[in-house]
């Protein structure tokens, strides 16, 4: 860690806080994978890490490298854009695949179609 010795303290504190916040959010999200009971509930858990968890880590990385190399280092934004675009797509694909499989097996918990069977009003 000798390369970080010349970092001023007012940068090091936000970097440390952001890294820890990102890691804690991601851990809570992954814990949800274990603790939540059904598949469709578990579908919500990873988004905790991929929304603000990854944002905090990327911000910390941008701050750290920008100060360390004393120029603007923003290529982490690429990972951010990539994650923001791809996570919803993969979760939607997996959710639809699970719905398709559950319907084929005739599970009673999933609705048979997108329209409600007995429409309100």
């Amino acid at each position: 860690m000798s390369h970080a010795a010349d970092l001023p303290l007012f940068v090091a504190i936000p970097v440390a806080l952001l890294v820890l916040a990102g890691a804690v959010l991601t851990l809570i999200g992954s814990l949800g994978l274990i603790r939540l009971k059904s598949f469709y509930e578990r579908l919500h858990a990873p988004t905790l890490g991929t929304s603000f968890g990854i944002a905090c880590t990327l911000l910390a990385s941008i701050l750290f490298f920008s100060v360390q190399q004393s120029r603007l280092v923003v290529h982490e934004v690429l990972i951010g854009i990539l994650v923001v675009i791809t996570t919803p797509v993969t979760l939607m694909l997996v959710g639809r695949a699970a719905l398709h499989r559950d319907r084929q097996e005739g599970q009673q918990e999933v609705p048979p179609s997108a329209a409600p069977t007995s429409p309100p009003e």
Partner: peptide
């Protein structure tokens, strides 16, 4: 001081991510 702070917080974050 800064070095220790960063090194410990990064280590803690790595352990948390490993648990995740």
């Amino acid at each position: 001081m800064t070095e220790a702070l960063l090194s410990w917080s990064l280590l803690a974050a790595q352990i948390l991510l490993g648990l995740a």
